[in-house]
Design a protein around this nucleic acid. Structure first.
Lengths: 338, 338
DNA sequence: GATTGGCACTCGAACACGGTGAGTGCCAGC
DNA sequence: GCTGGCACTCACCGTGTTCGAGTGCCAATC
């Protein structure tokens, strides 16, 4: 295992590099950090760290920069999560408290996170897999045309048109609406299919076709809605990436436009506390030079969705993690209240 | 006025510059275009064009590039709208036909437009100012808590929670729901306020407070929803902007993140046929080196919203205009069908 | 009078060159 | 095991030079 001092050297390298964006040399290190040893000693330590793969030199006779593995060690062993200052905490709370509905909460969260971390923020809408049905509404728009509205306990509303195989009277609509609600309100999405499967049989034969159509539309909606949506913001912060722009930024922007990629990205963040994926640890190769800090959030004890940021591997991990965690907590609170 | 040939020279300059992204000189021009005159003549013409402000040189002894004014003339007088090829038209139709709901239509449109023009696409959701109410739904969630759902004829659904000043019985809910619908269904948003103003008086005194609360929530929602939303895509195409990246791209990304700015941008596009705003013609200074091509689209004769693209002033105007127009038409068709 | 070929001039891009300095690796001494 | 010393490497920077595309002007031509 690496000695205490060598770890200290690694920490110093990471901190300096994150700050200056330039390879850091032995002399500069001893000047800026009170390591209590001479540059020569630091050089020896660096040689070891390099051999172990924690740091690398861009070219001979340049300073060292941390590798992905170096950042990994830094995050795991050397860095804590930097708590936010209390003015910051207050600012978060004030900002989020102003939200009027779910869209607004998510929108504000993404802006807040982007601003706080000065990176690209990603916020997933509360997932519906664990959600329950708050209400199902059925409206008759025309004799053979219905509208189905689904309201979830996370405050999301989805609607679908239903074209009926046969005219469907107002009383039948009311009847179906009532029975549907008594069956599924308060139930989880996953339980709904078996709860409603016997429903058509209790209707008049001529209405059964319509009832079946309505039910299958409802089930479709539930499945579709389980596919999560997300919102992204702060892409302008990508311009702070590095000097070698077009090459670095392009694949990142492309990856960020693909909802699928982002969903996978967040999906990989399984650690209940907080997940940090560094550089090549990310499966998507467009994101090989970025790190992702993500965490679940939720209204109750359970996490219903995730949020996080995407930034250069050369990022302020403690600060970013602190901000992400804090924002996740407050969003959870807001959701619990509403 | 400029002679026929000088206009031809300007057109050639614009075309070449758009293609090569490099200042174009007199010799290269005569080689690539059959102008029928010598480089020297072209040089004289260029001197005139420069004096008139249509072209400029980045530095002495370099080729010329078009100015904003030059592009303006090109767009107004020299360039037509390039129609899409029929495979392209078919691709558009196929792609848009697959959409399942309004969100999907808008989402697909923005992706399509970005891909087609290789630029940043902006699509505004169908505006609600001219929309009508299709249905208002009122649900009782708790004795003193209601949910209000508004459904518009463009297929949009919005919901709001309503906390009642006093408990509100099921029959009252049904009553209010029925009366509300009979009053406002099929009406325009702007007409709703006066249609419902007398409604509270026809209720029992103890219910009037609640009815008023519901109504004011409804009116609020209508106003809020009139503020248009929009979707943006293809930001990765910004990387094709130019060589001097960070400086150019940053303000553009920032501008694009501000919904307000974009709404204003589209709002300025008032020409019913098609609006092209070039460089400094855009009010927002972050977009001074970009051009915006926008057009209204709608389900019927009326335009209900706008869509367009944002790209470098150095863009293929005829092609872009063709794509924007074609997409707008097809989206209009899709909306009319659903 | 418009067009053309010729010519001198300008100036950025590309390349070569040498000096500078930060940084390294190694080694002998404490 | 730490330190100071030393020779070496190599990116970076400023300078100088060349090269060539492009220009403006002018006199000759149609």
């Amino acid at each position: 295992m690496l000695s205490e001092r060598r770890l200290e050297v690694l920490r110093a390298i990471v901190q300096d590099y994150v700050g200056t964006e330039e390879p850091v040399g032995s002399k500069a290190l001893t000047e800026r950090h009170k390591l209590g040893v001479s540059p020569a000693t630091v050089r020896n330590d660096m040689a070891v760290l390099e051999e172990e793969g924690f740091i690398a030199q861009p070219h001979t006779s340049a300073g060292r920069i941390p590798t992905d593995k170096g950042y990994r060690l830094f995050v795991d062993k050397l860095a804590g999560v930097k708590p936010l200052s209390s003015p910051e905490r207050r600012a978060i709370q004030n900002f989020l408290d102003g939200a009027v509905d779910l869209d607004d909460v998510v929108g504000r969260t993404v802006r807040l996170l982007a601003q706080l971390t000065r990176q690209v923020a990603v916020v997933q809408y509360p997932s519906l897999t664990r959600s329950t049905v708050r209400h199902v509404e059925l409206l008759s728009l025309a004799p053979a045309r219905l509208m189905l509205v689904l309201i979830t306990d996370t405050g999301r509303v989805e609607q679908r048109m239903v074209d009926c195989p046969a005219p469907f009277g107002e009383t039948s609509v009311a009847d179906l609406r009532a029975r549907l609600n008594s069956q599924v309100v308060g139930r989880r999405f996953t339980d709904v299919p078996q709860l409603v499967q016997d429903l058509p049989e209790s209707f008049d034969p001529e209405d059964r076709g319509t009832v079946s159509t309505v039910l299958s539309t409802l089930l479709e909606t539930l499945v579709e809605e389980t596919e999560e949506r997300l919102v992204i913001g702060g892409t302008a912060n990508l311009t702070r990436f590095g000097h070698d722009f077009p090459l670095t930024i392009r694949p990142v922007l492309e990856a960020l436009e693909e909802q699928v990629v982002l969903l996978k990205l967040l999906g990989e963040a399984t650690d209940p506390a907080m997940t940090v994926r560094i550089g090549h640890e990310n499966a998507h190769e467009g994101l090989n030079s970025t790190s992702v800090v993500a965490v679940g959030y939720g209204s109750g004890g359970e996490a219903v969705a995730k949020l996080g940021v995407v930034g250069p591997t050369r990022m302020d991990y403690p600060g970013t993690m602190g901000a992400v965690r804090a924002v996740a907590r407050y969003v959870g609170q807001i959701l619990a209240e509403s």
